[in-house]
């Protein structure tokens, strides 16, 4: 039955993809080759759409493949499949975490971990900045500094930083505001 198969395939993806949504892509490619539920072109489109809609990319692609394969219920089942391993594994870890997190060795580990996580978050911001604030690709072609900066984006960036410092509103306000500015001024 297709629903059980969908659940199992996405359960496997949830179990073996470590480190974020893009880690699921090789497994999705396997779906193209092995099961033929979707084509390579479908997969490319799905990744593009998943990146242009809210929600974690890994979840968006799971819902999408499930939907294409077996309709709305398929989308729900694929999504439940991909999160079930997380639910089990994290629940076990969270259960023991409360008991061991005060131990000196664990605290020492987190002393090294926390700045590293901040570095990872910084790297994630840098990835987004590369395609929004800067035009790295154009710069590499022309080697002209004037093409490196996306002036329109940097102006908006400065305005948002200023407003955040001054008003400290909910992040959602800035996201919606930036989307509206993006549409009006064709970002």
């Amino acid at each position: 039955m297709i629903y059980i198969k969908l659940f199992l395939v996405f359960f496997k993806i949830g179990l073996f993809s470590i480190g974020g949504g893009l880690a699921t892509i090789p497994f999705l490619q396997e779906i193209v080759w092995k099961y033929g539920w979707i084509t390579s072109q479908d997969l490319l489109d799905m990744i593009a759409i998943s990146e242009s809609t809210p929600g974690p990319i890994g979840i968006n692609t799971a819902t999408f493949v499930g939907y294409k394969t077996a309709g709305a219920l398929g989308g729900i089942i694929a999504t439940i499949g991909i999160v079930t391993p997380s639910l089990i594994i994290i629940t076990i870890i969270a259960h023991y975490f409360g008991k061991i997190n005060e131990k000196p060795i664990v605290q020492a580990g987190f002393y090294g971990l926390r700045p590293a996580v901040i570095g990872l978050i910084g790297a994630a911001a840098f990835e987004v900045a590369k395609v929004s604030l800067f035009n790295i690709d154009a710069f590499l072609k022309t080697h002209s500094i004037s093409t490196l900066f996306n002036i329109k984006a940097i102006v908006l960036f400065g305005i948002i930083l200023y407003l955040m410092k001054k008003y400290k509103r909910h992040p959602i306000i800035y996201l919606i505001g930036a989307a509206i500015v993006g549409i009006i001024f064709k970002y």
Binding site: S52, I121, G122, A124, A125, V128, A129, V131, S132, L133, A153, L156, F157, I160, L161, M164, P171, Y174, L175, G177, A178, A179, I180, V181, G182, I183, F185, K186, Y187
Partner: peptide
């Protein structure tokens, strides 16, 4: 266009 704007806000929000 909306995502062009949203990505700029995402960078600012993460930095903050």
């Amino acid at each position: 266009h909306a995502f062009g704007g949203i990505r700029v806000a995402v960078v600012a929000l993460i930095l903050n």
